[in-house]
Simulated assay, not measured.
Amino acid sequence: MTPTRREILGAGGGLAAALSLSSLAVSGGEMIEVKMRGRDDGSHVWFDPIGILIKPGQTIRWTNLNPGNSHTTTAYNPTNFERPLRMPTAAKSWDSDYLLPDESFSVTFTEQGVYDYYCIPHEHAGMVGRIVVGRPEAHDWTELTGANGDLPEEAVKAFPMVEDIMTKGIVRRA
Protein backbone atom coordinates (compact mmCIF):
# COMPACT_ATOMS: atom_id res chain seq x y z
CA MET A 1 0.00 0.00 0.00
CA THR A 2 1.37 3.42 -1.00
CA PRO A 3 0.98 6.19 1.57
CA THR A 4 -1.00 9.23 0.52
CA ARG A 5 0.47 12.72 0.37
CA ARG A 6 -1.55 13.64 3.48
CA GLU A 7 -0.10 10.67 5.43
CA ILE A 8 3.45 11.61 4.39
CA LEU A 9 2.95 15.26 5.39
CA GLY A 10 1.33 14.19 8.66
CA ALA A 11 4.26 11.93 9.50
CA GLY A 12 6.71 14.72 8.67
CA GLY A 13 4.80 17.16 10.87
CA GLY A 14 4.81 14.67 13.73
CA LEU A 15 8.55 14.23 13.34
CA ALA A 16 9.07 18.00 13.34
CA ALA A 17 6.97 18.34 16.49
CA ALA A 18 8.92 15.56 18.23
CA LEU A 19 12.23 17.16 17.29
CA SER A 20 11.15 20.56 18.60
CA LEU A 21 10.05 19.07 21.92
CA SER A 22 13.34 17.23 22.32
CA SER A 23 15.19 20.54 22.18
CA LEU A 24 13.57 21.64 25.46
CA ALA A 25 15.37 19.01 27.53
CA VAL A 26 18.31 17.16 26.13
CA SER A 27 17.82 13.40 25.80
CA GLY A 28 18.76 11.22 28.74
CA GLY A 29 22.27 9.82 28.64
CA GLU A 30 23.55 12.36 26.14
CA MET A 31 26.64 14.30 27.26
CA ILE A 32 26.12 18.05 27.19
CA GLU A 33 28.97 20.33 26.19
CA VAL A 34 29.49 23.71 27.83
CA LYS A 35 32.29 25.77 26.34
CA MET A 36 34.40 28.20 28.32
CA ARG A 37 35.00 31.12 26.00
CA GLY A 38 36.60 34.54 25.95
CA ARG A 39 37.67 37.34 23.66
CA ASP A 40 41.28 37.29 22.53
CA ASP A 41 42.01 40.48 24.47
CA GLY A 42 40.47 39.04 27.67
CA SER A 43 37.84 41.80 27.87
CA HIS A 44 34.90 39.39 27.99
CA VAL A 45 34.61 35.78 29.26
CA TRP A 46 31.57 33.48 29.41
CA PHE A 47 30.11 29.96 29.54
CA ASP A 48 28.32 28.82 26.37
CA PRO A 49 25.53 28.03 26.97
CA ILE A 50 24.97 29.97 30.17
CA GLY A 51 21.75 28.10 31.01
CA ILE A 52 20.71 24.53 30.28
CA LEU A 53 17.90 22.11 31.11
CA ILE A 54 18.86 18.45 31.54
CA LYS A 55 17.37 15.25 32.89
CA PRO A 56 18.59 13.59 36.10
CA GLY A 57 21.53 11.31 35.35
CA GLN A 58 22.94 13.41 32.52
CA THR A 59 26.54 14.57 32.37
CA ILE A 60 27.84 18.01 31.53
CA ARG A 61 31.38 18.46 30.22
CA TRP A 62 32.99 21.88 30.38
CA THR A 63 35.85 22.50 27.95
CA ASN A 64 38.10 25.55 27.99
CA LEU A 65 38.17 26.88 24.42
CA ASN A 66 39.69 30.20 25.44
CA PRO A 67 43.34 30.16 24.33
CA GLY A 68 44.29 33.15 26.49
CA ASN A 69 42.82 32.18 29.89
CA SER A 70 42.44 29.40 32.40
CA HIS A 71 38.95 28.89 33.81
CA THR A 72 37.13 26.85 36.46
CA THR A 73 33.65 25.48 36.84
CA THR A 74 32.87 25.71 40.54
CA ALA A 75 29.54 25.06 42.28
CA TYR A 76 28.12 27.71 44.56
CA ASN A 77 28.45 25.72 47.76
CA PRO A 78 29.95 26.45 51.19
CA THR A 79 32.45 23.61 50.62
CA ASN A 80 33.94 25.74 47.83
CA PHE A 81 35.56 28.75 49.49
CA GLU A 82 32.54 29.29 51.76
CA ARG A 83 30.38 30.50 48.86
CA PRO A 84 26.59 30.62 49.36
CA LEU A 85 24.58 27.45 48.70
CA ARG A 86 22.93 27.79 45.28
CA MET A 87 22.25 24.14 44.48
CA PRO A 88 20.24 21.27 45.99
CA THR A 89 21.46 20.40 49.49
CA ALA A 90 21.56 16.66 48.70
CA ALA A 91 23.69 17.17 45.56
CA LYS A 92 27.44 16.70 45.42
CA SER A 93 29.45 19.90 45.05
CA TRP A 94 32.19 20.25 42.43
CA ASP A 95 35.26 22.33 41.59
CA SER A 96 37.25 21.61 38.44
CA ASP A 97 40.36 23.47 39.58
CA TYR A 98 42.00 25.58 36.86
CA LEU A 99 41.49 24.23 33.34
CA LEU A 100 44.08 25.28 30.80
CA PRO A 101 43.06 25.75 27.14
CA ASP A 102 41.60 22.54 25.63
CA GLU A 103 41.23 20.82 29.04
CA SER A 104 37.85 19.44 30.16
CA PHE A 105 35.97 18.53 33.33
CA SER A 106 32.70 16.58 33.72
CA VAL A 107 29.95 16.23 36.33
CA THR A 108 26.92 13.89 36.33
CA PHE A 109 23.80 15.44 37.87
CA THR A 110 21.47 13.06 39.72
CA GLU A 111 19.52 15.36 42.05
CA GLN A 112 16.64 17.39 40.61
CA GLY A 113 16.95 21.12 41.16
CA VAL A 114 18.70 24.33 40.17
CA TYR A 115 22.50 24.50 40.20
CA ASP A 116 24.44 27.75 39.92
CA TYR A 117 28.16 27.77 39.24
CA TYR A 118 30.95 30.21 38.47
CA CYS A 119 34.51 30.61 37.24
CA ILE A 120 36.77 31.47 40.20
CA PRO A 121 38.99 34.08 38.49
CA HIS A 122 36.15 35.58 36.42
CA GLU A 123 33.12 35.61 38.74
CA HIS A 124 33.42 39.41 39.07
CA ALA A 125 33.17 39.63 35.27
CA GLY A 126 29.85 37.73 35.36
CA MET A 127 31.22 34.34 34.22
CA VAL A 128 28.48 32.22 35.80
CA GLY A 129 26.11 29.53 34.64
CA ARG A 130 22.89 27.84 35.66
CA ILE A 131 21.78 24.22 35.22
CA VAL A 132 18.21 23.06 35.77
CA VAL A 133 17.91 19.33 36.37
CA GLY A 134 14.46 17.82 35.84
CA ARG A 135 11.37 19.83 36.72
CA PRO A 136 12.07 21.40 40.12
CA GLU A 137 9.32 22.98 42.16
CA ALA A 138 9.18 26.79 42.18
CA HIS A 139 10.42 26.96 45.78
CA ASP A 140 13.61 25.16 44.65
CA TRP A 141 14.75 28.24 42.79
CA THR A 142 12.99 31.20 44.35
CA GLU A 143 15.20 30.69 47.42
CA LEU A 144 18.25 31.37 45.22
CA THR A 145 17.34 35.04 44.97
CA GLY A 146 17.87 35.37 48.72
CA ALA A 147 21.30 33.71 48.52
CA ASN A 148 22.98 36.57 46.67
CA GLY A 149 24.86 37.52 49.83
CA ASP A 150 28.38 38.26 48.73
CA LEU A 151 27.94 37.51 45.02
CA PRO A 152 29.32 40.22 42.76
CA GLU A 153 26.65 42.34 41.09
CA GLU A 154 27.84 41.29 37.60
CA ALA A 155 27.39 37.64 38.54
CA VAL A 156 23.86 38.16 39.88
CA LYS A 157 22.84 40.07 36.74
CA ALA A 158 24.30 37.39 34.43
CA PHE A 159 22.25 34.39 35.62
CA PRO A 160 19.51 33.46 33.14
CA MET A 161 16.02 33.14 34.58
CA VAL A 162 14.98 29.59 35.52
CA GLU A 163 11.72 30.09 33.63
CA ASP A 164 13.67 30.90 30.43
CA ILE A 165 15.79 27.78 30.79
CA MET A 166 12.74 25.60 31.39
CA THR A 167 10.96 27.11 28.37
CA LYS A 168 13.87 27.22 25.90
CA GLY A 169 16.00 24.31 27.13
CA ILE A 170 19.22 26.16 26.31
CA VAL A 171 19.99 29.82 26.97
CA ARG A 172 22.96 31.52 25.40
CA ARG A 173 24.43 34.78 26.63
CA ALA A 174 22.83 37.82 25.05
Rank of each mutant, 00 (worst) to 15 (best):
P3M: 15
G57P: 09
K55W: 03
V26W: 00
R5P: 02
I8R: 14
V114M: 12
Y76V: 05
K92E: 03
E33K: 08
E111H: 01
A90Y: 07
A16Q: 12
P78H: 10
F81V: 08
S93Q: 04
R61H: 05
A18R: 09
V162Y: 14
N69C: 07
L99R: 04
Y98W: 13
V162A: 15
A17F: 14
T145G: 14
R172M: 04
V128W: 00
T108Q: 07
S104F: 07
V133F: 12
L9P: 09
L19Q: 09
A75G: 03
Y115H: 13
A138E: 10
Q58E: 08
S96L: 04
Y117V: 13
Y118V: 00
T72P: 01
K157Q: 09
G13F: 13
I8E: 13
S43K: 13
T63H: 01
E33M: 07
H139F: 10
I8C: 10
G51W: 02
G42W: 01
Q58Y: 04
I8M: 13
P49W: 11
M87S: 02
L85K: 08
M166A: 01
D164Q: 14
T73L: 12
T73S: 14
F81W: 12
M166T: 12
A147K: 13
H139Y: 10
S43V: 14
D102Q: 13
S27F: 03
D40L: 10
T63A: 02
S96R: 03
M31L: 05
G14V: 01
E154G: 04
T110P: 03
D150A: 09
S70D: 05
P152D: 12
T110V: 11
G126Y: 06
I8T: 11
G42R: 03
D97W: 11
D116I: 05
I32H: 06
A11L: 15
T59I: 06
Y76I: 05
N80G: 06
P3N: 14
M1Q: 12
N64I: 02
P160T: 15
E82Q: 10
D48H: 06
A125K: 10
K92T: 02
V114K: 11
G29K: 07
P84Q: 07
R83D: 11
V26N: 01
E103N: 08
I131L: 00
P101S: 08
I60Q: 00
M1P: 09
I165V: 15
P88A: 11
N80I: 07
R39Q: 10
P152F: 09
S96M: 04
A158R: 02
V34D: 15
A138S: 09
V34I: 15
S20D: 05
R37F: 06
D95I: 02
T59G: 08
L21D: 11
E82T: 09
T145C: 13
F105N: 10
S96H: 01
G10A: 14
A125D: 09
T59H: 08
L65W: 11
P78T: 11
Y98S: 09
V156A: 10
V34T: 15
V107F: 07
D48N: 13
S70Q: 05
G28M: 05
W62E: 14
S93E: 07
S104E: 03
R83I: 05
E82W: 11
V156H: 03
T89K: 08
L19C: 07
V128P: 00
F81P: 04
M127F: 01
T73I: 14
I52H: 13
A17M: 12
E30K: 09
R39I: 04
W94R: 04
G29F: 08
P56T: 00
V45M: 06
L144I: 00
Y98D: 09
